[in-house]
Design a protein around this nucleic acid. Structure first.
Lengths: 231, 231
DNA sequence: GACAGTTTGAAACATTTGTTTAGAATGTTC
DNA sequence: GAACATTCTAAACAAATGTTTCAAACTGTC
């Protein structure tokens, strides 16, 4: 952001067409989805010609792929960095601290109203109806974060078998994404009455519930019912 | 299903065009979304003429609305009925039983591979990019189930303030939907290695985690930080 | 200023889109 | 059987879609 020279006064016009198209595509693809977004929607939002998409990106599908990759690598790397910071702390975080920071790590890139919702929407869409080459979403974006989170939880949490740790991370992620989606839906409808809690209070509930759940999992391990899976 | 006479041998051809279109629309709208599904896709799947959609439903958007309503009222009523059965049991269910049955109630209509995934997909899409009149999804479908679930939990669970009970239901729903979406994604990619647990074991984790979370919430109520919200 | 390379613009391309039209087929009623 | 309403089909409609074409405009270099 700060890297641009201050020659031009208008920040939008400092970006070249390539970047303006990418920005418009991020907004529109996230907002309305791939099919509901026409190339002309994008180019008119970007203030350029229809042909520019094909000149700069080689087609609508290629633009979508580049859009998705540019957004999601940003999201992933930011999360991985925050997770790395957390786990590098000199006294290892307590379980409470870990769960709370985990929520921040997962949500912080998503709650920024500019790009946050776009992230969530485009990932959600990709989960239901993938438009990317198969496996890209899972292997490049979901699994790395999943792996690190599971390892981190296993380190700070109570004694948990690997599978239980993974399931606990899934439980936490599910809670966070669902409450965020619900928040967006309710905000759109102006129904602030349905979930009368501030973000702080919602976070407190999440930590409370999840820490309780993790302890319960540690006290009652899954493994005993598993006949030592061949691996 | 059993109400049809056995005059015709071919079950598909016993349905009239109206129903065949509706069935095809359910499949395709859920599978690919509203925009990616063309009227011709639907009519060719239903084996009828393009004009039939407009004749029987008055347009693509009307067909979508009818499709959504027919699917979701089915889903909602089935869940509400199961929830009613559970709470009508002579000895009130324990918290463990409640959480376990809650999972069944939420998932059972969704795991049937025929229609289950269609339900989940179409609801998910409606949450990110509504195509229905605003509020229909929330007020007709989500809130009734939410209300009943919260009330039921408050009845069988430990002492929980209303807001905490609601948040606990949210936590449970979030977990269930997320693990189901993950299951679908992984199944599509053939990655059975990522989540090496049977449905029974996943259910066991869910119950364990959620019961632990609920107890933790009861032990540490949210209310004390709330300055008695004006209502 | 002339030149080569890059970027942009207006127009047109062939498809596909949702919808409409008019008429044939079908079943029902008198 | 005639008149009727209902349901279906083929064809056509205008509008929107992603993409291509090609000349104009711009860029920097000599």
């Amino acid at each position: 952001m700060q890297t641009e020279t201050d020659i031009s006064v208008h920040p939008l016009e400092t970006e070249d067409t390539h970047d303006r198209i990418l920005a418009a595509a991020q907004k529109l693809f996230s907002d309305k989805g791939y099919d509901a977004t026409s190339v002309r929607d994008i180019t008119s939002e970007a203030g350029c010609n229809v042909a520019s998409v094909n000149y700069h990106f080689g087609g609508k599908d290629k633009l979508y792929l580049e859009t998705f990759r540019s957004m999601l690598t940003l999201l992933r790397d930011r999360r991985l960095e925050m997770m790395g910071d957390l786990m590098a702390r000199k006294p290892s975080p307590t379980l409470d601290e870990f769960v709370q920071t985990f929520a921040t790590i997962m949500l912080e890139p998503l709650v920024d109203d500019d790009r946050g919702r776009m992230f969530l929407n485009i990932v959600t869409r990709e989960m239901i109806a993938p438009r990317l080459p198969p496996g890209v979403l899972l292997e490049e974006f979901l699994e790395p974060m999943m792996e690190r989170s599971t390892a981190a939880l296993a380190k700070v949490g109570p004694q948990l078998d690997p599978v239980s740790a993974r399931m606990c991370v899934m439980s936490m992620v599910g809670q966070l994404l669902h409450s965020l989606r619900a928040h967006h839906l309710l905000a759109d409808l102006g129904r602030t009455d349905v979930l009368p809690l501030s973000q702080t209070e919602q976070l407190r509930h999440f930590v409370r519930f999840s820490v309780g759940g993790i302890h319960a999992c540690a006290a009652d391990p899954l493994q005993d019912s598993l006949p030592e899976v061949t691996q």
